[in-house]
């Protein structure tokens, strides 16, 4: 075979594999909102919420319960990633990367602060207060935060096309949040903590991405992502959960009650889907470029709406559907222009 034909074949193989990983990411990410929503209705989390609500009010109860759920989510993601690294034979690389704290792993720990207590906690709060579809679709705003941050931090230029994409995503965001808010206002009951959770998800993931990228581009993503979740586990289990327990919330007594088959199953399901959506995401980048990878990954918003409809029979408000579609279109406009990685794919 000649050079030209081989080049073509290689880039074809790369592109189809890359799309496969990116699609897997979207599907896993979309599925994650199922266990994320179901877990609220399961013991011990529903009892915990009721118990805290009696003395501390509904809002506090939801947030404290969300903390415990997020902490368990981090734990099961860690478990899934440790098995993944074991299968790939990457424990050695994991140790080597962990030891490079100053140049490398500090970025993962910093990223985990924004990813965990802000983005994932915010998502769970949004799921608990408003619902899975809203939580999923509001997270789609993250590229806006990420690119504005990159503009101020690395001085990355925002092209006309990217700005257009950002504009479309913002209109989508206003539709998602505005639609819900208006109907809440008319019923006189604004679930502002839920909306705050949606904004936390978008801001947190945007910031996380910008920070984690600094470490990930010089490490293996399998190892890097595991360290990012190691950081999140430390934050929850060594800092926040004990602190809340100190303030008198019954964290440990409810945490010890998760060993019910159904609850464990749902938590593990959440861990597997969330852990692998991250892994797939990063596998797609070198093959089809960060731009396309993120654009296709963002189809998770639509996947989640489909899965929520299939499994729970819930049709979200039309504002969420329209807003979500706008966000996905916007992310395609914004990302597909990034040709730097595609040049190498085009070869020639």
């Amino acid at each position: 075979m000649d050079l030209k034909a081989l080049k073509k074949q290689e880039s074809k193989r790369k592109i189809s594999k890359g799309y496969m990983w990116a699609l897997f990411c979207a599907v896993f990410w979309g599925i994650w909102y199922l266990p994320g929503t179901v877990v609220w209705a399961l013991n011990p989390f529903d009892q915990m919420q009721a118990a805290i609500a009696e003395t501390g009010g509904d809002g506090t109860a939801l947030v404290v319960t969300a903390v415990l759920i997020t902490a368990f989510n981090a734990l099961t993601v860690m478990l899934a990633l440790m098995i993944w690294n074991g299968v790939l034979g990457k424990y050695g690389e994991l140790g080597r990367t962990l030891k490079e704290f100053h140049p490398c792993s500090k970025w993962f720990f910093l990223a985990s602060i924004f990813g965990g207590p802000i983005a994932i906690l915010g998502s769970f709060i949004a799921m608990g207060f408003i619902g899975g579809a809203f939580a999923a679709v509001s997270g789609l705003l993250y590229p806006v935060v990420g690119s504005i941050l990159a503009y101020y931090w690395y001085g990355e230029k925002i092209s006309k096309r990217a700005a257009m994409g950002i504009g479309v995503i913002i209109i989508g965001g206003i539709t998602i949040f505005g639609g819900g808010l208006l109907s809440d206002l008319s019923s006189g009951n604004v679930q502002w903590i839920g909306y705050l959770g949606g904004l936390m998800a978008a801001a947190g993931w945007g910031i996380e991405g910008a920070i984690a990228g600094k470490g990930l581009d010089i490490s293996e993503p399998d190892a890097g992502l595991t360290l990012r979740f190691l950081g999140e586990n430390i934050i929850w289990w060594i800092i926040i959960v004990p602190l809340l327990a100190l303030f008198g919330y019954p964290m440990y007594s409810f945490a010890l009650q998760v060993f019910e088959p159904m609850t464990l199953l749902v938590l593990i399901f959440a861990g597997i889907t969330f852990g692998f959506c991250y892994v797939c995401w990063y596998k797609s980048f070198p093959l089809i470029g960060v731009g396309r990878g993120q654009g296709i990954g963002n189809l998770y918003g639509l996947c989640s709406i489909i899965f929520i409809f299939l499994f729970f029979g819930q049709v979200p408000q039309w504002t969420i559907l329209v807003g979500g579609t706008l966000c996905v279109i916007g992310s395609f406009v914004m990302f597909t222009e990034d040709a730097s990685a595609l040049e190498t794919l085009r070869g020639e």
Partner: peptide
């Protein structure tokens, strides 16, 4: 293969540049 994929990742991250190919 996994080392080769690391090189591909470094190239796609813009740290290495693919300058020549051969069969």
């Amino acid at each position: 293969d996994s080392i080769n994929f690391d090189i591909i990742e470094l190239a796609s991250g813009g740290m290495l540049k693919d300058v020549e190919q051969k069969v």
